[in-house]
Design a binder for these strands. Sequence first.
DNA 1: ATTTAGTTACGAATAGATTCGTAGATTAAA
DNA 2: TTTAATCTACGAATCTATTCGTAACTAAAT
Lengths: 123, 123
Amino acid sequence: MANPTPAELEILQILWSQGDSKVQAVNDKLCEQKPVGYTTTLKIMQIMTEKGLLGRKKDGKSHIYYPLIKQGDTQTSLLDKFIASAFGGSKSKLVLQLLGSKDISKKEMQSIKQFLEEQEKQK
Amino acid sequence: MANPTPAELEILQILWSQGDSKVQAVNDKLCEQKPVGYTTTLKIMQIMTEKGLLGRKKDGKSHIYYPLIKQGDTQTSLLDKFIASAFGGSKSKLVLQLLGSKDISKKEMQSIKQFLEEQEKQK
DNA sequence: ATTTAGTTACGAATAGATTCGTAGATTAAA
DNA sequence: TTTAATCTACGAATCTATTCGTAACTAAAT
């Protein structure tokens, strides 16, 4: 399955976070960030349906759309591609760049270290 | 400064890793992965020069090109944008996804843990 | 039945990135 | 000086994603 385009990803994020939705609801959410025409959103969601990224069921005169791909799978796939193109395929280079950045919050560092500790216990 | 496009990034990677180069050398390198015409590579490098991504100096009848932006800065900028679009802006979510993935090598985990240990000592 | 509001389907316009053909310029060699 | 090889500059073609106008359709309200 091909990766979603940027505009498609925005729509997927909305569906993943707020659940199955009508075009109107998705468009409203998108408009909170930047103005975008209703038919633009509709068109992209129709394309996504053709591609197999979304499914839909009829509801009155409109449709309710839902994602056919999992958020985690998509993130993994996008991440792999990103690491290949920007970090020469090295996962650790990316992580080190992140861990070394000044603007990573303490809370974020906390949850990372905690994850590693729990992983140690597993063994 | 706007982020480089995918094709531009490929060229930057080559210049960062093998140093200042002529179009010919860059194109040869690119062709190791996929066939691409000489004038295609030339055109993109000319555009990059207009944009201020590359500089160049005359050498005989050709030019020697060099990056005007740092690899680390570019990676940081691309990464920020990527995290915003694919991980809702959460750095830790991305790291956890990576650390939890099955195909991260032991060597990579090693260098990550080592980095965290050294960071602890700093305090 | 007619009107109205909301929705869909379709196709075209736009925009940006990528690709490459061609013509002209430059350099080195014969 | 002429030729050959290489390189640059330019513009056009292509491709993909995005945007939106318009017309047709649907359902509900009057």
